[in-house]
Design a protein around this nucleic acid. Structure first.
Lengths: 283, 283
DNA sequence: AGCTCTTATGAATCATTGA
DNA sequence: GTCAATGATTCATAAGAGC
């Protein structure tokens, strides 16, 4: 255990995920959003869990997550198979099967589709432009607030060939916390429910830490699966993006990371984040 | 065995998939593109394989597919988990694991993302807007012609991450066989390689037969993984969409289906299809 | 030709009804 | 009860009509 930094509505703990989780009370967390390290043969990368041992490594952690999650809570897992020797690794498939066996309900699989994937050229594949977003729950009935993530109707969005004119200066890039902003400007338009594909650009200007998801990603699930004042947990906090989304939308945040540097970044970003107020916060 | 209708470059056989495949010579097929029936509890739907028995049902068929495929060939499997009792079924996960164990190389997973998914509203999920497109091969080296499916730079890569991109789903027209169409109009532009996400609208024109994927979907893989004159197999021909793509691009087609009505439709659509000529055929 | 408006419909899911 | 069939819900396309 390294140290604990705890402020009002924020609790970042540095240490081994499994050990720290044991300190968390039963059924105290409303939502878990996380992106665990990928399986990798190289030991010196973040995490560095070997593919064959990945499921065995993750399952005890998942058992703790199942314990600390409230009955109506959700667990959103962002993950993607990497390629070894020209093949996709299968540990993700096995993980989902074992999580279900452990007691998690595999409610849905959302997708994160990236319009601007990392460039590159290979002879046997194209650029990888998507990742899994598995949605697990403890019970068949869980809190879900669909109206908070509605999007402008297709007709309206499409006819705005001049969209750039209207929202010229407001880049809806991931950094700008796309969802919920400019809500007032849309109030008189027709809204529809979204589908299970999140189309979000990768953030390019990160601070040097390994590629994290854009803020809009945890933001979407936080609005969808939790209320203001609820507690959101990220057991692999990384650069603390989940925490940023929490502060923006008035959720309590608990982050865990084994690296002191990541904890420092997570805390710094949380402190730098300004909560959304009034119309700008849709939920 | 029902009957065999064979013309030049077209061979549609009605009968049980597993039995018919046994008549096909070893390593005679260049590419397999198919969308098998989904697992379902209801007996009277197409196929009607129960989820628990799905993998056991499919594996012997896959073994035949492995046998008839040429060493440098590809197998593209379109499938999607359906929901039962509020959870996604897991037979697809098990199937991929078993196929790999059988000897298939899981090279890549492409996605079919639909801008126009089936409508509906439910309390625990949104509309399902995507399906799997697993890419299996026999060996690490297989034929792949990336330059044939390049896309214009402006349409894709440029506007990435903007507001309009996020809410306006950019789509290649399915009915017009989007890929390769308007090729002349693109000649003077810059091209870039695509990513592993296919954005294709569901066709709603083909009524009567159980609507399959849009023509542009097999078209993309046929151009990518086969040459003109090659033999393409669809062991679950359904409405014969794969055959249409074959005739358009000068590939030989073998289709198998257990229902006489589907075979008739497959043959009729093949006959109605006009091969692309000159500039319009990119490959 | 374009442009607007209307209409039909699709590998879905869930709750309800009927056997 | 368990299982199977029916109806309500919902929206991005394409096609067709009208101007």
């Amino acid at each position: 255990m390294f140290r604990i930094v705890s402020e009002e509505n924020m609790d970042v703990r540095c240490g081994d995920c499994l050990e720290v989780l044991k300190e968390v009370p039963d059924e105290s967390v409303n939502l878990i959003v996380t992106s665990p390290p990928y399986a990798d043969r190289r030991k010196n990368t973040y995490g560095g869990i070997e593919p064959d041992k990945y499921v065995a490594w993750f399952l005890p952690i998942a058992a703790e997550l199942l314990r600390v999650l409230k009955p109506d809570g959700s667990f959103v897992l962002n993950i993607k198979e990497n390629v070894v020797d020209g093949q996709r690794l299968t540990y993700v498939l096995n993980l989902v099967l074992e999580l279900q066996r452990q007691g998690w309900r595999w409610t849905e699989e959302y997708l994160w589709v990236k319009p601007n994937p990392f460039p590159g050229k290979w002879s046997t594949r194209f650029r990888d432009a998507w990742e899994h977003l598995y949605h697990f729950t403890k019970s068949a009935e869980f809190q879900m607030h669909q109206e908070r993530v509605m999007v402008p109707k297709g007709d309206w969005a499409k006819k705005q060939g001049t969209l750039s004119e209207k929202f010229h200066h407001r880049t809806e890039s991931a950094t700008g916390s796309g969802f919920g902003r400019n809500h007032a400007a849309w109030l008189d338009r027709d809204y529809v429910l979204p589908d299970n594909v999140l189309r979000l650009a990768v953030e390019s200007r990160n601070r040097g830490h390994s590629a994290a998801y854009p803020v809009a990603l945890p933001e979407w699930f936080i609005k969808l699966f939790s209320n203001q004042g609820d507690l959101v947990l990220d057991p692999f906090a990384g650069s603390g993006t989940t925490g940023v989304a929490c502060k923006m939308h008035g959720r309590k945040f608990m982050g865990i990371d084994i690296h002191q540097q990541n904890c420092d970044i997570t805390i710094a970003r949380w402190k730098d984040t300004v909560p959304l107020t009034g119309k700008r916060s849709a939920a």
